[in-house]
Every structure is written in C-alpha cells, then in structure tokens.
Design a protein around this nucleic acid. Structure first.
Lengths: 338, 338
DNA sequence: AAGAGTTTTGCAACCGGTTGCAAAATAAAA
DNA sequence: TTTTATTTTGCAACCGGTTGCAAAACTCTT
C-alpha cells in the first residue's frame, strides 16, 4: 500500500527498491516496451510500495507529447456552454487528453493565449466559440500549434480545422419556417452584431426573404447573449412596433424577449411567434417549451475530438472543415403546422 | 517578428543566436535574476526573432512548481456551475495558475483522479462540489496533494481546507423565513438525499421547526439537481397532498417544481410559496423572480484561491476552514413581509 | 595604476524521465 | 553441447530547462 509524506517518489527510487536499472522501471510503465514479466512485477511491487506515479511532464520532454489540449472559450455566460464544456471534458478524458482552459476575459487578443499555451506545450488547441473575431484561430496555427475551431466558420486557410454548423443555412431554415406559418411581417433578433454566427444567420435569413419582396422584414441585434439583452431589445421593439414573428439567434435571448412580450400582455404564439436557436436543455422545460433550431452539440464536439486525435496520432494532416446540419424542434412558441 | 515551422525554439538555440550562455538566457527569463541589461536585451532580441517561449514543463522539473491546479467537479448539469467555473478560471488565471479540469463522470472513486493529478504534478487541487461522498477530498491530501474543498462541509481533519457556506444555518434561515410568513404546514424539497449539503440544510430546517410542534412539516427529495427532478417530485406531491410553502434546495429544482404547480393551476405565491437556493442568474429573470437564498459564490471562490496561493507561496500551512454567511433575496415567490 | 568590492557570466550538475545501442541472458536450432 | 537467433538489460546521452559556485568583468577608491 501507499502512505507517505508530501515528497513524491521518483523513478530512481523505484529502481533502487526493485533492484533494477532506471530504464527497466521506465519500460515497465511503457505500453509494449521490452521487459520480462519477472522484472515488470518486481517494478510494480516497488512502485506500489512507494505510491509511485510517473511524471508525465518529465516524460513529455522526450516524447514531445504532453496530453494537454488548450480549450479556449469566451462564452462563460451562456448556459449552453456548460453543455459544451461537459461534453468536451468528457470526450477529451476518454481519449486520454487533458483540457487546459483559457477563459478569454474581455480582450480577445489571441497573443496572450498563444504564449501561454506555447509555454505549456499543448499538443493542440480547440477554440470553442462562434463569436470571436475572424482570424482568431489563425494565430495558434501561425505559432505552430494545431488547431480545431469548433463552432467556427469555414475559412480558406488549409491549416485551420473547422467543425461547426452551417449558420447561413440555419438562417434559411428559420426564414422558411416562418414563411410556412404564413407570416408577412417577420423579424430577426440577432446576437452581437459583429459575431460571425449572427452575420451568417442573418445572411441566410435575408437570402430566403429576398424572394418575397412583399414580406416585411425587420432586423435587430441584442448586444449580448443574455436574458437582459433579449428582454431590453424586445422591450424597445414593443414601443417601436412589432413584427408578427421573430427568429432569435439564441435561446436565452428568446427567453428574455418572450418575457418582455408576456410582460406587455402579448400571447405567444397566438399574437407573436418566436423561434430560437440552440435547443439548450432549458428550451424543453415545461414552462418554456421554445420552438427552436437544434444545433448538434454532441456531434460537433465528437467530431472535433476525432479531428484532434487524428492530427495527433497519424501526422497525415488532412484538413477538416465540416458543417453539420441543424433541424427545427417544434414546441409551443410557433403555431403548429397543419 | 516571429514566423516559423512547427518546431518550437529552445533555450539553447536562443543562447546560440544571442551569443551568450544557456544560463544567461534562463536568467533573462527569470524575474529578478542577475543579468545585465545588455545581455538581457540581446537575449530578448534573439528570443523574439525565434518566437521563443520558455517551456514551463521543463522548468517545473527543477522548480517543482507547475502552475497547474486540479479543478475537480461533478456538477456539469446545473447552470450554477457555469458561474462557478467562470469565476474559478478567471481567479486562477489572475494569479498565474492554470486549471486542469477533472470531470467526475458517474464514478466518484477518487483514486483515478488522484493518480491523474499526481502524474501531472499539480501544485494543488480544488474540489468544487457539495455533493461528493464524505471524505472524498481526503484522498488527495493522503496522496500528498494540498487540497481545498470549495462548497465543502467542515471536517476535523487538519489537512483539508474548506471554504463553503453554513448549510445548516441556511436551512434555519429558510425555516425562519417561512415561519415569518405565518405558514403552518411547510415542506422541504431537497436535492439528492445523500448529498451532505441536502442533509445539512434539512438538519437546520428541522432544527428550527422542532420548536414549533404544531407546524406540520413534510420532507421530500428530488433525485437530482434538475428541472425534471423538481417537476416530477412536485407533480407527485400534488397528488399526495401539498404543504403551503416549500424550501427547495436548489433554484433549478424550484423552477421545475413551480412549473409543475402552475401546470396544475396553483398560483404562486398566493396559494403556494416557494423559496429556493443558490440565487443563480436565472432566478432574477423577469419571468421567474424566485425568492431564494443567496450563496456568495464569488466570495467562496475568491477565498478558495487566496487559500490556495497562501499554501503555495508561504508554506506555513495554516488550515483554513471558513463558512460564509448566506442571505435571502426577496423576489416574488413568497408573499412580501409586512 | 593597483587593490578592494560588486556585479555578471559560464561551467557543470541536476530535475525525472526516455531511448539507441551494445552487452548479457535466455531460448531455439543444430 | 555448441552455435545461432531472440529477448531482456543497463549504460549513457539526451529532452529543456535551473542553479550553486568560482572565475571574469566591471565599478569605485585611494
């Protein structure tokens, strides 16, 4: 058994106790190395005795693999990210990688993160955000770190892997759904105006509606992916005149907007229709029942990790840019279709 | 400027380019080391040129400080944890520490995590959870890793630091608040029955009520900290008979429970009162307005990090066990007082 | 200009592992 | 049993840094 003071046991100590060379110990802890069962068991016994665990960091010096993966994100206020986060940490754990979190506070200058992740010799980084400036992920690649941008937007750089959704198509899906309900005055309530995801969804939305010139279209932006932003923006829209239905670029924004509408005694969906985006857990709660566009989180993350391990094991670097399809989840905030 | 292939530059290369010894380079990157401004600038120029960043992991071999801190948690489904997580990563970043996340999936056997964190030579670990088995944090300490248990329960082990809230007192606060509204039949709707936090809050709750034998008290447990668990448990309570007001051990559970009540056409707070726990962001949303007990998240986390850095810098290990006070945030799910 | 005091420098050993290579030990073949 | 092929072992060098120590290079006095 193992009980000891704070000093952690080292390879040499184990070697001494087991009466073998240091290399023998090293090999005993290396999958598929050349060791006889006899010495291996001697080593194991000694290691057990001392509570020895190999120092991964020292090992990384020679193997050049740390098992660390930078996980860079900036959306620590949207509950959807907890789901993202749960999935990422789990997936990475199962393939033996450890997430090293970088919480981008305010400043979206990538250089600081790049330095940090270089210092820690991460094997790769995954940037998980749809709201970073265009080209953010590039900095990592330029510093020689392989990168996969989850929830990103395709780019023509061959060195950036992107796994995300087709936001433009998502915008089209929303527009078509509103058309199918027969509305002739529809609104777009986006997230931050400069976020690529917002811009892409708007592009798709308008793309479809441009074929229907007699349908009135209004465009608004909530400054933030928060309840308050949705509430406030909708409150001001209520005063300035409403469309019949809105595509909100995020579920939390939708919930804020609906709250403002209900507060002003509008009935949803009878008077105003709402379709959200993300399909976060909360959207299905009995008191919300938001009709929304489902983003395949688990697939995105699964694919991201596959892409990652692919890059790390076989070094045949085949760039990966994959957009997964979204679909509508019908609930109670748009009138049912026939 | 810096532009280079994937190979990262090393200390020796910088030394060669700058025309100085390796030690000089090392010292140039060490705060307060003995280097002349002349050589330091030579080194800096060369480093810049090569895009060099010191390898923290190699450094850690001799300094015995990795800057890594294990962040062990199991509550990746409660939105409150996103706030916890945001605060922790930020706080740690500001003191130059990097969180290494361990997502406890299912199995709460600590041994696996202990091994992992030993392998990565973390400087310390913070366990952030109020629902782990008693003694969970002990394993880390026994393996020689300093540990602070955030949201934990005090223990008489002198080697475990605890920063949390007084759950027993919180239970009392809730009970007193319900008494103040004049209810004579009150309920407790806890989280998982075996969680220490649930047990402690129940203890405090019953402690107060035991002085009022004529007040009827019912106790129930939601299996989980989820909307569904709250909804389902309340649904079954509706059939079996309701108290006049409930203390729910978590805001998400409260929201689920309220949703079930509203679904059954009960009016809150006129017919049924609810007081929650946590005061998560959502509790303040206009469509929820949950009266709840505020847990001082930011203080808990700030203190945890202070405790952490304290242990790491001055090695004068003074154990820290601190319970911070909670207070009620009055909103709209209990009748206003006088 | 020489001597004393201070600062800066490089050497070499070390941190905890891995790994190529040749020698030692074992197994298989003759 | 000897020879040959195969497996197992230890040596020593290396991964990318840090640091104690003595020598070298500067100051500043006198």
């Amino acid at each position: 058994m193992s009980q000891h003071s704070s000093k952690r046991a080292t390879l040499s100590e184990v070697a001494a106790l087991a009466g073998v060379s240091r290399s023998a110990v090293s090999r005993a802890f290396t999958e598929g190395a050349s060791v006889s069962v006899k010495t291996r068991s001697k080593v194991e016994r000694a290691a057990q005795e001392l509570g020895y665990r190999p120092n991964v960091l020292a090992r990384s010096l020679t193997t050049r693999k740390t098992g660390l993966v930078g996980l860079v994100a900036n959306n620590f206020h949207n509950p959807i990210f907890l789901e993202v986060f749960d999935l990422f940490t789990r997936q990475l754990q199962t393939v033996g990688l450890r997430p090293l979190i970088v919480n981008l506070t305010e400043e979206t200058d990538p250089q600081r993160s790049v330095q940090l992740l270089l210092e820690y010799q991460v094997d790769a980084v995954v940037v998980a955000s749809s709201t970073l400036p265009v080209g953010f992920a590039d900095s990592f690649s330029e510093a020689g770190i392989s990168v996969v941008h989850a929830f990103g937007r395709p780019t023509n750089r061959k060195d950036i892997n992107v796994i995300g959704i087709d936001n433009i198509e998502a915008g089209r899906i929303a527009a078509r759904r509103l058309l199918a309900s027969g509305y002739n005055d529809v609104g777009f309530l986006g997230g931050p105006e400069k976020a690529t995801s917002t811009r892409d969804r708007l592009e798709g939305f308008l793309d479809v509606l441009s074929d229907y010139p007699k349908i009135k279209t209004r465009v608004h932006f909530a400054g933030d992916y928060t309840f308050e932003a949705g509430f406030d923006e909708m409150a001001s829209m209520i005063l300035r005149g409403l469309s019949q239905a809105y595509f909100c670029a995020d579920d939390v924004i939708s919930i804020g907007a609906m709250s403002a509408l209900r507060r002003a005694n509008f009935r949803i969906p009878q008077q105003i229709g709402i379709i959200g985006f993300n399909d976060m857990e909360m959207a299905g709660w009995d008191n919300i029942r938001l009709t929304t566009i489902h983003q395949p989180l688990d697939q995105i993350i699964e694919e991201s990790v596959i892409c990652l391990t692919g890059m790390l094991t076989l070094n045949t670097i085949k760039t990966y840019q994959k957009l997964l399809p979204c679909h509508i989840v019908e609930r109670d905030t748009l009138p049912a279709l026939s």
